[in-house]
Design a protein around this nucleic acid. Structure first.
Lengths: 340, 340
DNA sequence: GAAGTCAATCGAAGCGCTTCGACAGCAAGG
DNA sequence: CCTTGCTGTCGAAGCGCTTCGATTGACTTC
């Protein structure tokens, strides 16, 4: 491997001149710069990462901790890890992957050894040990997701409240007055970050604000939609609009569950998915949606982290990114004035 | 951050003694070692990764290139990336994630800058640019998957031939004589590594060797099983055993497709899935299986790579790992002697 | 008791970069 | 003409480790 010294010799300049010519941190004459660049190209020179990191005190690596336990849906988290990696490359950073048991220990290790300049935390739980850790170490950390206690943490997440309000607005604009929410399976509420709660709260609040009755149902398993559907129509027989924000599996079966009740989408019922992560590997949900798209939150999180690393950050506590409405034709005008 | 010098001062020994006490590369008296360890613990000392890498010429990082294009199933590849990461940690390596456009460029970059000590290549295509690259750079590389031209490459893969033979053996042992294979969708053959070919070839060869008629069908889409099923029974009406090795989506619909023909599993037809990657996020395939489990191939690949890095490698060209039979009750004895 | 052995420790030379201060030249300003 | 102030370049001091002799005693061995 060619070193900076080889380049310097080949170009007939000093080592520091090569460094400055390559980094642009001091002005170097055009002609010298050309000679350096040519010599570097000819030798196939690439600065040794470890030497650069040692001297500059910067590894240009960010760690990504994603527990990726067997019980979580890895599809979604992988999409985030991938999107973080892509965003990081756009800022000239590489990403170190920390999974499972090593998500926490690895975060500690990579920070203590200065292996990484900063860390992105994925798959954030309500009470997350990594939140504790982030407060105690002197090392930039950004969370994608919001833990219960955000004191002193930089977090990025979808604006779920916005997604809910927009969903309701859209249904109301189409004449719907009897609107229900299918929320997450109760067990999710305990483990996951707090967004399922935020969603339900905002749904109830905003519906009430609009003078409408908030109906909320939960699936009884992690793949079955029928129970939630029947629960909805038990509570409010005239329902014509459904906002769904639950496990992908449940949502996939929603159309079938409605059909089983003799209802079709969107003729009888309009459906909008709010704050759900699109399944990458298969047919996307066939509903109008305000998805939690990794491509939305990850670049923002990486930008904040890089700013933090470079010491240029305002570092807001929590940054909420508004989702984008995607129409798939599952919202139609409420046909007839539905009986109360 | 505490440095090795701080530890040395605190322990009252020289820097080199600390280094040797910590690495164990030279003998150090028990008492001295204790003092060093105590001092290190007290200071919360962690060696700076970049300094270590520069001096030792080893980063203890391996790169993982996984294109993860939107059109591939990221679930499976994520499982591999995760398993590689876990295996690497077991050998005290961290993993750098390289995706999409950067899979190739990043591999070049991380090798040229000595960012990584070696590279694991995932999602190997038949004609893979990374195979070319691996031959030209002086940098250990191990492929998980087998490209067409393995000249000079270290590859690890499932022993698909073994999976096929074992599947057939199992069906034959249960009295089945009319056995068919559901292979991959034709388009997969072109893009993917050569395992779909290897599977079909071995199926035909081994069936013929046993004096049986090899029947092979392909799905016409990437999610529909009915076409393949009807094709099978068109070719061989008395089929009682099916070996399936195709897209997960297709396999998920196989039971339904058989039911539609009035056949039930395993009463009328026995089914074994051979060489398929288990879907992590959802219900696993409900068939007896010889799965391509990442936990099987990844540790082997990482071991080979680490050996290669440490210069202790026999570096076989291609290492095939035998799958493990998993019974789920979808193989039953052939009820009646089937008509030819 | 001199010579040889061996375990334990130290000192110093790197590893290949970045970056700071110095210092030539040269143009402009007094 | 002598300052000032640039611009462009160089030299050298690190960054924090690893690792290769060299050194020092203590212990054998004949």
């Amino acid at each position: 491997m060619a070193t900076i010294e080889d380049v310097a010799r080949n170009a007939g300049v000093s080592i520091s001149t090569v460094s400055y010519a390559l980094s642009g941190k001091r002005s170097i004459s055009e002609t010298t710069k050309r000679r350096v660049l040519d010599a570097a190209a000819e030798l196939g020179y690439a600065p040794r990462a470890s030497a650069k990191a040692l001297a500059a005190n910067r590894s240009d690596i960010i760690a990504v901790t994603a527990p990726l336990h067997p019980d979580t849906d890895p599809t979604a988290h992988m999409a985030f890890a991938m999107e973080v990696t892509i965003s990081a490359r756009g800022r000239d950073f590489d990403t170190l992957l920390l999974v499972q048991d090593d998500a926490l220990a690895g975060m500690k290790r990579s920070a203590a050894s200065a292996l990484a300049d900063g860390t992105i935390v994925l798959d954030v739980a309500a009470h997350d040990a990594r939140a504790e850790l982030a407060r105690t170490i002197d090392h930039p950390v950004v969370f994608i997701g919001v833990p219960d206690d955000t004191e002193g943490l930089a977090c990025v997440d979808l604006d779920f409240e916005f997604a809910i309000r927009t969903s309701i607005d859209e249904l109301v604009a189409n004449g719907h007055r009897h609107i229900a929410l299918i929320g997450h399976h109760p067990s999710t509420l305990e483990r996951e970050a707090n967004y399922p709660l935020r969603i339900e709260r905002e749904f109830k609040r905003y519906m009430t604000e609009l003078g409408l009755t908030p109906v909320v149902a939960h699936p009884t398993t992690d793949h079955d939609a029928t129970s939630a559907v029947s629960e909805i129509f038990r509570q409010q027989p005239g329902t014509t609009g459904i906002v769904v924000s639950t496990a992908n599996q449940v949502a996939m079966n929603l159309t079938a569950a409605l059909n089983a009740e003799g209802l079709s989408v969107p003729a009888d019922v309009s459906v909008i998915a709010a704050g759900m992560t699109p399944a990458m590997s298969r047919t996307p949900l066939p509903f109008d949606a305000l998805p939690l798209d990794p491509a939305l939150t990850c670049p923002v999180a990486v930008d904040i982290l890089v700013d933090l690393i470079q010491g240029v950050a305002p570092a807001q506590e929590v940054t909420l990114v508004p989702p984008v409405y995607q129409s798939r034709g599952t919202v139609a005008p409420a046909s007839a004035p539905t009986p109360a």
